[in-house]
């Protein structure tokens, strides 16, 4: 029997992922803004599933309303509603994809190692211990350390990119 929580989780997760992709790759700034608002709205709904109703309301008020109004004012002032999508050159996009793919594999291997799933079955770790309770100190701090290290790595990568000669940029 499928629980209502699972249905809500999958609906919110799919909307969140699609709207996050929309923020990054939407062709116009207006669509990116709409996708951004959807991300904030449905992440608040997801927080509600995690027994964090107060946090959900707080984020929706602070980010969904306050921040989006700020963003609307900014976009009106600088009149870039119809600004087309500009991304870096194909080489940079490919290199970033490779770096992020390697990070994904490392994160998967880390989770797989900690939860003892099989490497052959990509979603094996989901089936085995997804409902178990785990000790916070064993996982959370190391995961967040990884997040911080990755953010620093991305900032460094960006700086390395920008200090190079960027004559190969394309305006898509």
């Amino acid at each position: 029997m499928v629980s209502a929580e699972a249905v809500y989780f999958y609906i919110y997760a799919i909307i969140l992922v699609v709207s996050a992709i929309g923020v990054v790759f939407s062709p116009r700034m207006f669509f990116a803004f709409c996708a951004f608002f959807c991300t904030l709205l449905f992440s608040s709904c997801l927080y509600g599933l995690l027994d964090a109703g107060f946090m959900a309301v707080f984020q929706f008020l602070l980010c969904g309303l306050f921040l989006c109004i700020m963003l609307i004012l900014l976009l009106r002032k600088i009149t870039i509603w119809t600004l087309p999508l500009k991304i870096a050159s194909r080489f940079r996009v490919a290199l970033s994809a490779v770096v992020l793919f390697i990070f994904g594999i490392l994160a998967y291997l880390y989770v797989n190692f900690e939860f003892g799933g099989s490497i052959g079955d990509f979603f094996g770790f989901l089936n085995e211990k997804s409902v178990d309770t785990v000790d916070f100190s064993g996982f959370s701090f190391s995961i967040h350390l990884m997040i911080i290290i990755t953010m620093v790595m991305c900032v460094m990568l960006r700086n390395i990119y920008l200090t190079k000669n960027n004559t190969e940029d394309t305006d898509d």
């Binding site: 969140l16 992922v17 996050a20 992709i21 923020v23 990054v24 790759f25 700034m29 990116a32 963003l71 900014l74 976009l75 870039i80 600004l83 500009k86 991304i87 870096a88 940079r92 996009v93 970033s96 994809a97 770096v99 992020l100 990070f103 994904g104 997040i147 990755t150 953010m151 991305c154 990568l157 960006r158 940029d169």
Partner: peptide, 18 residues
């Protein structure tokens, strides 16, 4: 997944707002 998408956007985009 959200983290990877966000990081991709931060590395790949050229517009500051994005």
């Amino acid at each position: 997944i959200l983290f990877i998408i966000g990081m991709t956007g931060a590395v790949v985009s050229r517009n500051m707002v994005r």
